[in-house]
């Protein structure tokens, strides 16, 4: 019977899909662990830069460096959208794209910079070509890559007349929870820190040069942190998605096996009936 063979083929294909989703889950889990380690390792560096910048800002209220400017002047804005390069990661890319669409509705004249292929594709389709997209960043996570992105953004901010640059990305909470965050990247708003030094520092060459350099470093590390957070979230989302895909495949295999057995039994019964009615016909 053709039906039996159909079901058997179906079971085979679901089985191989399950194997793939299972493997993807394992890969995501190991990448997630690595990303989490990187987040923890990056913390002391980010904290020190932040503390220094915070201290400098408090001590030098009168120097108004553009990197640390306060307030929200009207003018050209840019938005950095951080997504993944690949799909199959549940709602990971979708939630970012939705948040981006909301943002662009509020500020329609924003120029967009994309990190990650998925976001770039979305923007191109719905908003027009992004002014710059970086793709394939997340395969080889390296600090020098985030430096390239950061120097591009700083160039944009300091020389192209943008008044603010915002960023939308996924923040890593746990393997099953990622939160979409939108925040201002430039001008810099240093995070509140408890270790602000009260000592009077001597600066060499001078406070302004130091602020500029520290600001650059701060953006470097901020981009690096955002990339790490996003990549950890991506792997977490993929792991959860692939886990439930594997569960679904297992359930489907169960149901299909039941159907298969039923069809097989029906076929046997039919054959027996055929034989016994044939024998009856001869006897009579």
């Amino acid at each position: 019977m053709a039906n039996i063979r159909d079901i058997k083929n179906r079971i085979e294909s679901v089985r191989s899909t399950r194997q793939i989703t299972k493997a993807m889950k394992m890969v995501a889990a190991s990448k997630l662990r690595k990303a989490q380690e990187n987040i923890v390792k990056a913390r002391p560096y980010a904290d020190s830069i932040n503390e220094m910048l915070q201290t400098l800002k408090l001590k030098n209220r009168e120097t108004e460096h553009p990197l640390l400017a306060e307030g929200h002047p009207e003018g050209k804005r840019a938005l950095v959208v951080v997504t993944a390069d690949r799909g199959l990661s549940g709602a990971f890319n979708f939630t970012i794209n939705r948040a981006t669409a909301d943002y662009l509705e509020q500020h329609p004249k924003t120029d967009v910079i994309c990190l990650g292929r998925k976001g770039a594709e979305f923007i191109k389709k719905h908003h027009g070509t992004p002014i710059k997209s970086f793709v394939g960043l997340f395969n080889e996570m390296d600090f020098s890559i985030s430096k390239d992105v950061a120097s591009y953004l700083l160039e944009l901010f300091l020389n192209e007349g943008y008044v603010s640059i915002d960023v939308i990305y996924n923040e890593f909470k746990s393997a099953i929870q990622q939160d979409v965050r939108a925040k201002q990247l430039l001008p810099i708003i240093p995070v509140k820190s408890e270790h602000i030094s009260t000592l009077e520092f001597i600066y060499e060459p001078d406070a302004e040069t130091i602020i500029e350099e520290l600001g650059t470093k701060y953006i470097n590390v901020e981009i690096w942190r955002i990339m790490l957070e996003s990549s950890a979230s991506e792997q977490g989302a993929r792991m959860t998605a692939m886990d439930s895909a594997t569960d679904n495949a297992e359930e489907l295999i169960g149901t299909l096996t039941l159907h298969y057995n039923r069809a097989r039994q029906a076929a046997i019964t039919t054959e027996i009936i055929e034989i016994s009615s044939g024998a009856d016909a001869i006897n009579n």
Partner: peptide, 17 residues
């Protein structure tokens, strides 16, 4: 940036590139 400098115990608070 402005030259090598040595730091011994009791050095004043200082920031440089």
């Amino acid at each position: 940036v402005d030259g090598d400098f040595g730091i011994l115990p009791g050095h004043t608070a200082f920031i440089t590139k």
